[in-house]
Simulated scan of single mutants.
Amino acid sequence: MQSTHGEAALAITVVVVGLVVRRQLRTRPVRRVGSLVTPAVFGVLGVAAIAFGVASVVKDRPLTAMPVVLLVASLAVAAGFGVARARTVRVWRDPQGEVLRKGTAATTGLWVAAGAVHLGLGLWIDHAAGAGILGAASLYAYLAIGLGAQNLLVRGRAAAL
């Protein structure tokens, strides 16, 4: 059962991160509000998924401090990756005056690394919990925090142009 859980977590992580990276590599305008919609949606999904993940643990055993500490650490790591990625996104003003953004190869590399780190931390969280799918369920919250941090910093760079 554990290897099936790990395989499912890997597949979900690859698909979701792949879709996010694909969007990051396209040239897009920097929007005042639009850049926060996706992280907000991921945030709502993340809260619901974490609640489900906690429920999946506590139905079999009490939730201990270790998986909670690891979850918080995971979300802090997500913010760190977001800050690092923001520095790799190209931001410029086109001839018409519109501010544009586009991820680079370094942005992609950091997304892949962030996905791998989340997968590893998620498996560690689930191992520490001893039951349930809290680590895997935290993917949306991880994306919300990382993408939110990245987009806020990119918006700040765009405003400075």
Rank of each mutant, 00 (worst) to 15 (best):
H5L: 13
H5P: 00
G6E: 14
E7G: 14
A8R: 14
A9Q: 11
L10D: 07
A11I: 12
V14Q: 12
V16D: 04
L19K: 10
R22I: 02
R23E: 13
R23I: 05
R23A: 12
R26N: 11
T27G: 00
T27L: 09
R28Y: 07
V30N: 00
P39M: 03
A40K: 11
V41R: 12
G43R: 13
V47A: 12
A48M: 09
A49G: 01
G53I: 07
G53T: 11
V54H: 02
S56H: 01
V57I: 04
V58I: 09
V58C: 01
V58L: 00
K59A: 10
T64G: 14
A65T: 14
A65D: 08
M66V: 14
M66Q: 08
M66E: 11
P67G: 03
V68M: 10
L70G: 04
L70N: 04
L70E: 05
A76G: 13
A78Q: 02
A78F: 04
A79H: 02
F81H: 06
F81K: 08
V83S: 01
V83I: 03
A84C: 03
R87H: 10
T88Q: 12
V91P: 04
W92L: 03
P95C: 03
T104S: 15
A106T: 15
A106I: 12
T107Q: 07
T108P: 01
L110E: 01
W111V: 08
V112E: 01
V112N: 04
V112D: 07
A113I: 03
V117N: 01
V117C: 02
L121C: 13
A128R: 02
G130E: 05
G130L: 05
A131M: 01
A131Y: 07
G132K: 08
A136E: 08
A137D: 02
A137K: 06
S138Q: 03
L139E: 05
Y140G: 08
Y140F: 15
Y142S: 06
L143I: 05
A144W: 07
I145G: 10
G146K: 08
Q150D: 03
N151T: 11
L153A: 02
G156E: 10
R157S: 09
A158M: 03
A159Q: 05
A160I: 07
A160K: 13
